[in-house]
């Protein structure tokens, strides 16, 4: 049943190649060869989005922040921080992320932001906290442009963190750990919470720590980490 749907879906997205803009073709071509999965050498892009709210249909992405990890190092020289002009404005979430509609930050249109992001992310493995939310938000942006969804592999730090916890009946196993909770437990500086880039950095540090624990203590390979 499931596979039937999946096939159907992929057929839909396989529209003639020329239909998509060049930048998408360049991005998509990077996935022609399945890259080797290795915790050391694979490239990871750890990202976070700030949005106008939590409704995938009406709400919009205001900012994408991301950092890159290669060889277990975060390169500050290659971080990504793009603010996006949006018509939708939600007073309620301004309190959280502090992004006003006409703030004096260089902003880009959704179209430009998508191009920049695809170029940045390439075929890296995407890492995010509660990844489904950020992925859906970005995919909705792509859909509005008539583009297919992101092709990258995705790791969720919630799953990674959960797997590091001991199996104990005294810990609620399916707890949806928040970024704050984990940061508190790992004593990470949270002064940049609720800026996309700041949250991406916290997520990246959590990623480095949890994967170190999982690969040393539980001898997990990167490919196994996708199935936690």
């Amino acid at each position: 049943m499931l596979s039937f749907f999946r096939r159907n879906k992929s057929k839909n997205t396989e529209t003639p190649k020329s239909y998509y803009p060049d930048y998408w073709e360049r991005y998509a071509a990077l996935f022609d060869h399945e890259p080797e999965l290795d915790l050391q050498t694979s490239r990871f892009v750890v990202l976070d989005t700030e949005t106008t709210g939590f409704d995938y249909n009406i709400d919009r992405v205001l900012c994408i922040g991301a950092v890159e990890i290669v060889n277990r190092q975060i390169n500050v020289s290659n971080t990504f921080e793009t603010y996006i002009r949006q018509e939708r404005f939600n007073e309620k979430t301004v309190e959280i992320h502090g992004i006003l509609k006409h703030e004096r930050i260089v902003t880009f249109s959704e179209d430009e932001a998508i191009q920049q992001f695809l170029e940045y992310v390439g075929n890296a493995i995407i890492v995010a906290h509660h990844a489904r939310f950020d992925m859906t938000m970005i995919n909705e942006m792509l859909k509005r442009k008539g583009l297919p969804v992101l092709k990258n592999k995705v790791l969720d730090t919630v799953n990674l963190y959960r797997a590091t916890r001991i199996k104990s009946n005294f810990i609620q196993y399916d707890k949806p750990y928040t970024l704050d909770e984990i940061a508190e437990n790992y004593i990470l500086d949270v002064s940049d919470r609720h800026t996309a880039a700041g949250d991406a950095l916290i997520t990246a540090l959590i990623f480095l720590k949890t994967t170190a624990i999982l690969s040393n203590k539980k001898k997990l390979t990167l490919s196994k980490m996708f199935n936690l």
């Binding site: 971080t79 921080e81 002064s191 880039a197």
Partner: peptide, 10 residues
Amino acid sequence: MKNTIAERIA
């Protein structure tokens, strides 16, 4: 371009 992380490191 704004670079929040670099600012915080500084």
